[in-house]
């Protein structure tokens, strides 16, 4: 057992998700547990299959989706060469995993907590909801472009109050932004907590509303990563003083009023 390590572990299971809607795009990949002492929702891992040739030199970062004493699962959407090859892994294949990396989302069991997910940004919230002592205080809002079946929405909605909105047109987008504004305002007024993960424009919207309504909000940034351990300085963003800080070690979760992106 260790706090943080790099281990070769075997792939236990590759489960396609939402394939009727989007063939060959979303997968849950379950790995042997790398014997960490603990992990917290919002943290991530770097994954690089052991057999990868050297044409791709970096591992790929994934939010921790869920884990137990024997396994660790990540949820992936194919979006490039690296994720395509990870999706093609088979049980028994070996991958190097290093983690758990980065900080985690705030968890205040008694505070009304709003989870704002944009698409694949829903991944860390599966673990968040599982770990939350009072799921009754948690609510999920998912904004998505691909069909709902592709996301672990039902799994999360089984435990917490959840809504979702599909974006197909620019009218949909405006409706989503309005809904987010309304929700963030409501949680600001209740003194609750707003936690967001999604694409950059989505996070900027969260940041803007959080500022406007004075909400306590955290955003989880998903920058390109070379190392995941704070060494390459390729993932930086700016803190509120305008200094470059590594997203992989100082984040990925930042208070919305203390980061520029």
């Amino acid at each position: 057992m260790s706090l943080r390590n790099c281990r070769n572990v075997k792939v236990l299971k590759v489960a396609p998700v939402g394939q009727q809607e989007r063939p060959d795009e979303f997968y849950e990949i379950t790995l042997e547990y790398p014997d960490w002492d603990e992990w917290r929702p919002g943290q991530f891992v770097m994954v690089r299959p052991v057999a990868w040739p050297l044409d791709l030199v970096w591992g790929r970062p994934f939010s921790i989706y869920t884990a137990d004493e024997t396994s660790l699962t990540v949820f992936i959407q194919k979006s490039g060469r690296g994720t395509a090859r990870i999706a093609a892994l088979r049980p028994g294949d070996e991958v190097a995993v290093w983690g758990p990396l980065g900080n985690s989302f705030a968890m205040e069991p008694d505070a009304p907590t709003l989870l704002l997910a944009g698409g694949i940004g829903i991944a860390p919230f599966r673990g968040y909801v599982e770990r939350h002592p009072h799921p009754g205080n948690v609510r999920l809002f998912l904004a998505h472009r691909v069909p709902l079946e592709c996301y672990p929405y039902d799994i999360i909605a089984a435990d917490v109050c959840a809504d979702c909105m599909l974006e197909k047109t620019s009218t949909d987008l405006q409706a989503i932004i309005d809904a987010m504004g309304g929700l963030i305002r409501e949680y600001a007024e209740k003194g609750g907590l707003v936690l967001a993960c999604g694409p950059t424009p989505f996070m900027r919207t969260v940041q803007r509303f959080a500022k406007e309504y004075g909400a306590r909000a955290q955003v989880s940034l998903e920058n390109r990563m070379g190392c995941g351990v704070g060494a390459c300085l390729g993932c930086v963003t700016k803190d509120s003083a305008g200094h470059h800080v590594q997203v992989c070690t100082r984040g990925p979760v930042f208070w919305a009023d203390k980061v520029e992106f």
Partner: peptide
């Protein structure tokens, strides 16, 4: 030194490019 603006790194075949700027 604050270093260069982002993006600073890119993966290329069998390697990578970086322009960190000695942050």
């Amino acid at each position: 030194r604050e270093g260069n603006p982002m993006p600073r790194i890119a993966e290329t075949p069998c390697g990578m490019l970086n322009a960190i700027g000695i942050q």
